[in-house]
Amino acid sequence: MDYILMLLPSMLKGLTVTLKLFSLTLLLALPLGILMGMARLSHFKPLKWFMEFYVWLFRGTPLLLQLLFMYFGLMTIGIRLEREIAAYLAFVLNYSAYLAEIFRSGIQSISPGQYEAADVLGLNRVQTMRNIVLPQVFKRVLPPIGNEVINLVKDTALIYVLAISELSRVARTHVMRDGTFTPFIIAAVFYLIMTGTVQQVFKWLESRFDYYR
């Protein structure tokens, strides 16, 4: 018990690093994902093609590699980012790509009749998106987005490659120093609390949207 109490300060510090990456990514990637999802369906071909390329690039390579590129890769061409900034950048760009795909499919799942009804009532495109399409999209994309958010909790562990001391890296340091497995168990408990919270939040969100079918 004393050992656990002794571990806690450094592990909590690791946890805050993890939580910061998690929330910043979510905060930026969600709106970006919506915009990119719409851009992917744009009638303006170059924009559509660019988004297709973007999604292919960021979904098609390991996030681990993207982290290394953002830091070491950019360094070789003379751009030196802070390690944290490189991590945030890689995560936001990567998760935007996944979320863009979810929003794209969500938008496409809304029946053409909804657009036509809005159209004949005189709503313009922006009004139709904001009042008719997106509210219905949010309900439909909640389950897949819940999946992504839980993945995000666990993916934060990847930034150890940039020697950033997030939760799992702190735990590993202790394990190697003290020769006991306990820090890993504590880390696992922290991850489970985080993912459990995400799960509950999404359950609540889904119930909030349950008022219509």
């Binding site: 909804q114 036509e116 009804a117 009532l121 005189g122 709503l123 009004q127 009042n131 219905q136 219509y212």
Partner: peptide, 19 residues
């Protein structure tokens, strides 16, 4: 093609209010 996420009343008032 009613708007499923809006109540009946909201279905009716939306367009007059927006347009």
């Amino acid at each position: 093609n009613l708007f499923p996420h809006k109540s009946v009343l909201e279905n009716l008032v939306m367009a007059p209010m927006l347009v």
